[in-house]
Design a protein around this nucleic acid. Structure first.
Length: 279
DNA sequence: ATCCAGGCCCGAT
DNA sequence: ATCGGGCATGGA
């Protein structure tokens, strides 16, 4: 396929997901929904290999947000101001990935006070230990992210053998709540981002930022605006005259300025800030 | 070696 | 309600 506004590397490497492996430039292996995908560029085409037409239509179109009109999203955001315009133009091939709720929940619990390569490492450790083998591509074995039922009953001490660190106990709480039906996923679509946030934050180890990531990256609510250190920096720097600004003020500004597209804006800004190491 | 990472918990004000 | 120390781990 030949989609606009889709660069594989930008979409995968912008810090929103951790279950992929880079083979070479614009050549990646992705695992999601228990499936394996080899995805790479060939000229202007994006090739989906190692998959079926059914999986492409049922899984990957939704996963890579290919049913959304990014031409429209990008043009409306670019018109807001020069800052978001520059952030978008820096990496306009980013798309928001629609991840599985459980995997996203655990991944972003792991993300706290951590670095992206290590988050990937820990997600991979858990998959190798508790997930299923789903195939080999170019000599590398791949494993699906573990089912919640597979993690149920695993102690924090054992999870720490996969380098989760102090987050082991948080994962235990999240797994227990998930398996026991506490989250009621089927009700999320009728709830606002704010309501879901309150619900998610009742789990130990899930605060506002982790909750917003789960809401944006797995529940399709594009008005969520996860504000980590980088987003705080880039917003303070460009929109608040380089003055260190509180999360609440940044949130209010973001919702007012970017509205229903705040989540997309956040991802362009995060990527921009991180790549330019804005202090 | 010391610092810090897509934060959050918890106890002290 | 807000603030600061502590937290597992490992790479710079």
């Amino acid at each position: 396929m030949k989609p606009k506004y889709f660069v594989v590397s930008q979409t995968l490497e912008c810090g929103q997901c951790f279950n992929f492996n880079k083979i070479s430039d614009e050549n990646y292996v992705v695992t999601a929904y228990g499936k394996l995908l080899h995805i790479y560029n060939e000229g202007e085409d994006v090739v989906f290999e190692n998959t079926t037409v059914q999986d492409f239509e049922n899984i990957w179109v939704k996963y890579f947000d290919l049913d959304k009109d990014y031409m429209d999203i990008v043009s409306k955001l670019r018109d807001k101001d020069e800052i978001i315009k520059e952030a978008i133009d820096y990496a306009s091939g980013i798309r928001i990935i629609n991840q599985e709720f459980f995997q996203c929940l655990i991944s972003f619990i792991i993300s706290q006070n951590n670095r992206i390569p290590r988050i990937k490492k820990i997600v991979n450790n858990l998959s190798r230990r508790y997930g299923e083998y789903i195939g080999t591509i170019e000599g590398e074995e791949y494993f699906s992210f573990p089912l919640a039922s597979k993690l149920y009953g695993i102690t924090a001490e054992e999870l720490m053998e996969s380098s989760t660190g102090f987050r082991g106990k948080y994962i235990v709480d999240a797994v227990n709540k998930y398996v026991e039906g506490y989250f009621e996923e089927d009700k999320f679509q009728q709830m606002t981002a704010f309501e879901i946030r309150e619900k998610l934050m009742e789990t130990k180890g899930i605060g506002p930022k982790v909750a917003d990531c789960v809401i944006l990256f797995s529940l399709g609510k594009r008005d969520a605006f996860p504000t980590d250190v980088w987003v705080k920096r880039v917003m303070s720097y460009f929109y608040f005259n380089q003055q260190d600004t509180g999360i609440k003020e940044i949130h209010d500004f973001a919702y007012k300025t970017f509205g229903e597209r705040a989540g997309y804006a956040q991802q362009y800004l995060f990527n921009y800030a991180r790549n330019f190491k804005i202090k």
